[in-house]
Each structure stands twice: as C-alpha cells, then as structure tokens.
Design a protein around this nucleic acid. Sequence first.
RNA 1: GGACGAUUAGCUCAGCUGGCUAGAGCAUCCGCUUGACGUGCGGAAGGUCAUAGGUUCGAGUCCUAUAUCGUCCACCA
Length: 880
Amino acid sequence: MARELPKVYEPQQVESQIYDMWQKGGYFHAEADESKKPFTIVMPPPNVTGQLHMGHAMDATLQDTLIRFKRMQGYNALWIPGVDHAGIATQIKVEEELRKEGLTRYDLGREKFLERVWDWKQKYGNRIVEQQKKLGASCDWDRARFTMDEGCSRAVREVFVSLYEKGLIYKGSRIINWCPHCVTALSDAEVEYVDKPGHLWHIRYPLADGTGEVVVATTRPETMLGDTGVCVNPNDERYKDIVGKKVILPLVNKEIPVVADDYAEMEFGTGCVKMTPAHDPNDFEVGLRHNLEVIRVLDDKGVMNDFGGKYQGMDRYDARKAIVADLEEQGYLVKVEDYSHNVGTCYRCHRDVEPIISAQWFVKMQPLAKEAIRVVKEGETKFVPERFSKTYMNWMENVRDWCISRQLWWGHQIPAWTCADCGHITVSREDATVCEKCGSHNIQREEDVLDTWFSSALWPFETLGWPEKTKDFNYFYPTDVLVTGYDIIFFWVARMIFSGCEHTGKTPFHTVLIHGLVRDNLGRKMSKSLGNGIDPLEMIDKYGCDALRMNMVTSNSPGNDMRFFVERCEAMRNFANKLWNASRYVMMNLSEDSKNELPALSSLEIADKWVLSKLNTLIAEVTENMDRYELGVAVQKIYDFIWDTYCDWYIELTKARLYSEDAGRKQTALQVLTYVLDQILRLLHPFMPFITEEIWQSLPHEGEALIVAKWPEACQDLAFKAEESLMESVMDAIRAIRNRRSEMNVPPSKKAALYVLTAKPQVFQEGEGFIQRLAYADSVTLLDKEPENLDGMVTCATADAKLYIPMGQLVDVAKELERIAKELDKARKNLASLEGKLSNEKFTSRAPENVVADIRDKAAKARDLIASLEGSEAAMKKLG
RNA sequence: GGACGAUUAGCUCAGCUGGCUAGAGCAUCCGCUUGACGUGCGGAAGGUCAUAGGUUCGAGUCCUAUAUCGUCCACCA
C-alpha cells in the first residue's frame, strides 16, 4: 500500500471531496429506528439574510463535534438544520433594495412586496447553507427547514389558536416599545438599553388657582403635550395642600389634576412628576389608578400628531428643541441639568425606542413561566455552565407579557379576523370567511404578523412534524442538546422551553450548552461598523476548516467569550501538518497486505505497552470529558497525545525496529503504530473531521468511512501500568541526558558513552537502543556501584537512575558545580516540604492512604537524588 | 440598585469533583541537514495563581470580604 503523499497537507484539495463523499454516503441522514438510541440537536437557524460569521463558526463547530462524537458512539445522530425568516432584518434588506429603485413597500402593496421577499429568499437563502457546509457541518440536509415553510406555518397557526383558546393570547392596549424607524412594536427583549448623555429639564407648571406653581423635571420634554396630570407622593408635606388641585399645562394651556401616588419619589428632583400615560409605562400605571386621560402625541413614525398643536408634523427631536425654546421664551423653563440616563434602543436599527400606547397582541406569560421554571429548577433541563440557569430563572420569574404582534408584512400573519358589524374577533385554524359570532361576512384579517421568535420558539418540535404525531416526532423528540450563545437565552432558549412544555408536555432538550462570543484580538465585539470582523471562510481558505474548528474549540471553556487570533489558526494548521506527516511516515512503511489489527499481546515490547497503556487512559479521559461537554479539555488531551506521546516519543522509539532486519519485531511495531494511529484518528475526528477522514481512508481499514467508525473504548487488557512506569524511567534518563548535553552545547553528532547505576537494570538493558538513539549514546553500560574515577565525567540523576557520561575536556568544573548546587538546593527544598508533610501526624492520619504513600515514595526518591547530587558535588570539588 | 463573570508566564488562555514540583499556544533565547515533518527536532528562560482573612493534614481550586475590569437585568421622572 506504500503510498506517496505530499509533504505538506493541503486542506483545500481535500475538504470538498471528503464532504461530497460523506453526503453521497448518506452519513448525515437519520431515520427513526427503534433499534437505536436517538441523539438529536436542532441547529439555531441562521437568518436568511445572514452571512456566515465567527459566531456561526463557533456554534456549528460545537454542534458538529458533539453530533459526530455521538454518531461514532453508535447513536442515531440527527442534526436538523434550517433557516429563519428573520422578520425585521429581512424586510429591511428587501426594502433597501427597493429604495434603490425609488420604491417603498407601500408602492408595491403587501402581496407584491411579499413576492419580492420570497424571490429574495430563493436567491440568497441558500448562501448561508453552502457556507455551513464549508465548516464541515454534518447536518441532515434532507430535513432542512425554513421557519416560513408550510409545516412551520401550520405549527405556528396551531400554537396561536390553542393559546388563544386557552386565554393565553389576548389583544389589548398597553404601553409597548415602539421603533419609529422600523415602524413596529417590539418585545421587551428586543430593546437594548444604552447609557446616553442627556438633559433634565425643570419646567414650571402654574397652579390654576393662581396660588403658586410646581416644578417638574423631565428627560423628554416633547411628551409634555400629552401630560394629563402631575403626581406627588401622598406623604410629601410640601405638596399636601395642592393634591386635588389643578395645574396649567404650559404651551397647551390646559388644566390637569395633581394626584397623589406612591410612585413619586420625594427625594428625586422636586418630588413632582409629570404624568404622560400614553408615553411612559409607569405613568400609564399611575394613570389607570387615578383615571387620567391618555393622550398620544407621537405617531408611528415618531412625528408629532394632531394633538401636537403647533408642533404637529415635527419629528420628535425637532419638536423637543422647539418646545424647549418656547418654554424658555415664555419663562416656564427653570433650569437645565446635564443628565446621563439609559435610553432604550431598537436591537435591529439601534435608534431610540419610544414607549407608546398601542393595541397589540400579547402572550400571557405567568401561567407559561410556571412550568418553564419548574423544569429547570428540577433539572429536567440543565444549563452548561450551570450559572446560566440563574440568568434564566431570574428572567423567567420576572417576565412580563410578551408582545408578539409586529407591524411588518414579512412573517406569519396573525390568524384573527375582526367583524366590522359586531366587533368580535374570530381566531381560527382555517382561514375565516364569516364572523363566528354574528355570521357576518364583513370581516377583516389582522394586518400584523407575529414576532419572528414566535416561530423560532417552536423550532425543536415543528421541525419534527408537530403538530402531527409523526414517527419522527415520537422518536427524536425531545431533542438532546441545544447549543447556542448566551446572548439569545431570553430571545430563544427561554421561549423554546416554555413553548415545548406547553405544547408537547415535555421540555425540548435536557441540556443547553452555552458558549460565549467570538471577539477580535483586542477583545472587542466583531462588528460591521468597526470593520474588525474576521471572515471564517477566509480562514478556511487559508488554513483549512480543521484548523479553524480547532481554533474555536481549544483554549475555550463553555460560556466564556474568546478572542480570535489568526496565529492560533496557524498553530492548528501546523498541528494538522504534523499529524499528516506522522501518518505519511506510517504509510510509507506499510505494505500491500498490511492490516489494521493489534499484534498478539505476547509479542508487544515495552514501548508498545507504554503507548497502548497511555492511549487507553486517553480514551477513558477524553470520553469522560466529552460526556461532560468539556470539549476544550478533551481536544487538548488528544492534541498532546498526538504530538508528544505518539510523534515525539512513540514513533522515535519504534524507528530502530522499523529499520531492523528482524521482520517479526518490525511487524509488531508497524501494527501498533497503525493501530494507535487509527485510534487517534477516531478520537480526533469530531474535532478535525476532514484530515482524519482523508488519512483514515488511506490506511488499512474496515468499514466505509471514519465518520461512521466506532468511537474507541478503553479496555483493561491494554492497561500496562507497570510497563508504563518502567518506560518512563528510561525516558526520564533520556531527557536528563539531552538536557545536560544541550546545556553543554554538545551536538547530537558527538556521541558519548553512558554508564548507568540503577535499581531497575533490566529496563535500562532493554532500553539501551532507545538511549543510544535518542540520547546520542554510543554505548550503555550498567554499573553495580559508583565509578571510582569521575574525572571528566558529567553526571545526572533521575528518580530511578544515576547517569555518568564521560565528556572529557568539555566539562567545565565550575559551571558543573554551580549547576549541581542549584539542583541540590531545589531538591533539598522539595524534600523538606515532603518531610514536613510526613512528620505531620495529622497529615499521615487524615490524608487518604494513596496520597500518603505517594508522598513517601517521592520523599525516598528525593533522598536518593540528594545523595547522588552530593556525591557528584564532592567528586567535582575534588577535581576543582 | 440586583445578579454574574474575569483577575494564573511578555501576550492570549486551559487547569473538571482541593493532593501541583502550576500547563498550552504564540513571542523570546540557545543548539540541531537526528533516514515523516524546519508548518520540524532537542533544550532554556519566564509565575509569591489580584489583595486580605478563613476552612482544611493540604487551597490556583472551597468560604468571606476588598480592589480593578467586563457582562446581563432592573430603573427615579
């Protein structure tokens, strides 16, 4: 089979071919199969408007790694992909396109506009999917879904109607967050609060009876036109007398009442608050309690309406300026203070949001939150890391009703029809043609569509055929793990949980794996405006998908943000190349009839047992880490094993045998090399799917593809603890000698004899070849006592051996003495600390036995080491 | 105002249930045509694990304060 492979791994050549091979093999596809256990992940659907960014790369890498791991473990692994219609985002994109043609959506009308959006979706909707494939995502593309497709629409309709029937959806006039730019209502979660510098204007409101005045303070003077009262605290002595009186609203010249309500804080400002029930949630509440009039002065675009008097038609900011100017001119303005405060902004367009009273549709949250709280509290759904369950709980326990109607066209239109004759609202699973109450045909469908997150909330079950009781739904639902960033816990995770509980009776997943944000190298958020985004596709082009994935998953722990360093991609590219070359080396030595199987245990040599035993431990640990979602820890162990244990040591340890004439020994080495490489590839595959598959296909193997090969399992027969430790003794010696030679600048070409005094002579005898090859010894001689003449002798001591190397004139006595003194000092300190522990009776009696034994062992070795160093020191001194 | 996170080598970060003589990558320094790999090999230097207490035989790891930075939630006009 001896194959010639290029010296450098070229991912660009390999990745697309491998991906095609997987797709053709149907390995991504899963069917309900009662003989296998399912493992299901639903992908957070990216926006149709989306371009792949690092967040997607992170998300997809984690999910793909998990799904590949489970697939190899024999689960019926299903990863459902899909795309979100992303109401506002998409509509804005298409409207921008229209604007280039000088058109607005109103010019086209709803129907034609929606046609345009669908065209747009056909055209660009697949782009992000193709990009995900570049990441190696092993999704079941046959099941790809879109949140506006027929099935999702049916699910949305069913949910809306059933919630309405249960009284959990209602329409009402409330203060909601309104974005005048996007011209739609928003939910609480869609408002981002930003600290902005502003002003606090103090305004004089004269008492109607002419007996005085009150001064109110406001950050939004333009809303005063909608003032319908002034509020003071009932306990405020200052204002006791004026409660119930009227004040005159400046500019408007209207009388409004003074009311007493706990809402007004005596300590803040003057203790008087102006009440604008139509434009402030708190004022609205106070207004309800005191029967204040509700006057809305801003229209949907943030322009003063016909209640605005002379300011009508002015934009909210222009109106503010004009009103302040007039107040000042007319002597109502008392003072202006600089005042920094939190302003709500739209999470889409980042412009200021206006609290506005408006008739909207809401989901009643209290009853739904109850179960959603229970499933997390009782651990039916667990967050990883655990701390996010607290974030979740806090939100869920204080959640307010969810405003779900949006004044957009792109989205699921609300299935409600209002009767023009009797005013009744008909909500129906089928499109209504008559009023269910009075039978009138004069009914009009609600114009609004639903919040995008309303359909996303159903994602874990609508993608499996719900509300139909399908085979898929019964088999794959509830799903297993949900992977997403902490930034959408409220938007999405929380809503999926209460929706799943309410509509399917089950929490939609048992684990929520939370990851952080990918930031730039300075720790800033990647953003278009900063232009600091790094394109994952560019990284893939340059370093390979596997390198990018490794970058995402290493040195990163769940829930924490990470900084992105291109250098890390480079490092991981180098790692891929390292693995490639190690494999190339193994393959060069394989023959046509080579098989991948372990040789008879009796033929194994110490190095073989050492590597197999280490591998065995690795398998156990990595599997455990994976089960705990500690992917970063798992992959670090695999990385270290491959580079250190396998490449730097095992391959080197087997070279003598591989080039020897002894066919049997050579064969054993080669078989172990191949076996371990195969196991490594399996362990690494979930993280670096492409290179591992490519190499595996070139190795002797059974089965079609690595992607469906069996995940390794630890096995007692391959745990050789005794041999492992013996081998380490020899390796320690090799390291010590290299170290000493390097300090003395002796090149490898310069060989030297080695004398060894050890209590484990057998393994040093057996390991003579290793020492010769890796520590540049030209002979190894075992001693039974210290050599008499240490003239020109370099010494070093390991835990198990004393080593003597005749170096002649190369030895610098003074330098050696210095070195020995330094080591002695370190060793003595070490021993002192160990002995301190052992002489502590509390330690020996309370610490577990194995720990005490371990310390005893270490102390004994430390004593040996010190004795040996002292010997060397004395000898050196004699010379000097 | 409340909650949470971070603070470990020059830089960026790991370190899971307390046993560590504290690790990695990058950067630095020294040496190497060692029959897979210079995208490499061997070696070195670099840390009182933010500070102060406490629990424990033992603390980077657990507890309590403090400081600095950051995130989220709520919000007084």
